Simulated assay, not measured.
Amino acid sequence: MNGSTNISFPIFLTANILSIVILSHGNCGPSRCIACYLVSMAAADLLVLIFEVIMHVLKEIYFPKSFLDYTSICCLTFTFTFISIDFSVWLTVAFSFDRSVSICCQKLRVKYCTEKTATVVIAIVCGLSAVQNMPSYFVNQPGNLIDNMAWIYVVKSDFYILPVWKAYLCLDTILTPFAVFFFISVFNALTIQHIVMSSRVRRNFREGIKDSEFENRRKSIILLLSISGSFICLWMLISICHACVQFTENQFYQTNNNDPFTIVEHTGYMLQLLSSCTNTFIYAVAQTKFRNEVKNMITCQYSQRIQKC
Results as ranks from 00 to 15, higher is better:
F95G: 05
S157E: 13
G26V: 13
Q141K: 07
V154D: 13
E293D: 06
G127E: 00
F182S: 00
S100K: 12
A286D: 00
V125P: 11
N257V: 12
S40D: 00
I7R: 07
C36W: 02
V57W: 07
S100P: 00
T299P: 07
D69Y: 05
A15Q: 12
F51R: 15
L225V: 04
R305K: 13
F252D: 04
V294L: 04
F87M: 00
P10A: 08
S129L: 14
L145Y: 11
L13F: 15
I152P: 03
S239G: 13
C33R: 06
Q287K: 06
Q304L: 03
L224N: 02
K111I: 07
Q304G: 12
Q106K: 15
V164K: 08
F80P: 00
N256D: 11
P10H: 11
L49W: 07
S199Q: 02
A44L: 10
A189V: 10
I192C: 08
T114M: 06
K59V: 03
M297S: 12
S40G: 07
G26D: 06
V48T: 09
T299N: 13
R202Y: 04
N292L: 08
A130I: 15
K116T: 05
I298M: 05
M236P: 01
Y37C: 05
T71I: 14
T176I: 15
F80K: 02
V53S: 10
G268I: 01
L224K: 01
A123C: 06
M1S: 13
A286P: 02
V285N: 07
V155A: 11
P135L: 14
T173L: 11
M134I: 15
A243W: 03
F87R: 03
V21N: 04
R200K: 14
R218I: 08
M236W: 09
C170P: 01
F181E: 10
I184G: 03
Q193F: 12
L162I: 10
L175N: 11
C241N: 10
S8F: 12
A150D: 10
A150S: 13
S66M: 01
V139N: 14
I146L: 14
G229F: 03
F63K: 06
V53I: 06
T173R: 00
E215Y: 05
R200Y: 04
Y160T: 02
A15W: 04
R206G: 04
I17C: 13
K308C: 06
T280I: 02
F182Q: 02
T248P: 06
W151P: 09
E215H: 11
F231K: 11
T299V: 11
P64A: 08
L91P: 12
T299Q: 13
F87I: 01
I184S: 01
K166N: 01
L47Y: 13
C74F: 09
N27H: 00
N257I: 15
